[in-house]
């Protein structure tokens, strides 16, 4: 029996809850994600309904993390009441489709704080 396509089977239960989430498709030490809509209670290894984009978390030669989004279909599934998982919500927030996710703000200020602390420590070590 052939494997179900990673781009989605297109078959779904109308009443069941859907969720838009990241599905890991890379291999060992090389993460790569599909942004897919699937049933909320399904495992990530199971066939998805539809692929809505992709996310490459490893920076390429231009130091970019590439994200592809099919916004038309995302709008469609949001209209149908699909849930959005936090990582996808963050990506959509950074892309300007959603408001910026609170977690993005949180990681940003925490990163800033650790950097400030590191700088202060360096300064103290330099002066002593």
């Amino acid at each position: 029996m052939p494997l179900p396509p990673a781009t989605g089977t297109g078959r779904y239960y109308a009443i069941a809850a859907k969720s838009i989430r990241l599905i890991r498709h890379g291999c060992t030490n090389r993460p790569f994600f599909h942004i897919s809509v699937t049933h909320r209670r399904r495992l990530n290894s199971q066939p998805v309904i539809e692929q809505l984009g992709s996310y490459d978390p490893m920076p390429n030669m231009n130091n970019e993390k590439l994200v592809a989004l099919n916004l038309d279909r995302i709008k469609h599934w949001l209209g149908k009441g699909a849930h959005v998982s936090p990582p996808v919500a963050e990506l959509l927030g950074l892309s300007g489709f959603f408001p910026i996710h609170p977690r993005s703000y949180m990681t940003a200020w925490r990163n800033r704080r650790t950097e400030r602390e590191n700088q202060a420590k360096e300064k103290a070590e330099g002066s002593s």
Partner: peptide, 25 residues
Amino acid sequence: ELLRINNNYKTQMRAIRRFYHEEMM
């Protein structure tokens, strides 16, 4: 601060969801 921005986010998201739902309808 987290509580505040989370509340804001949830409110905005609710509006966005309703908007797309209405559009679909």
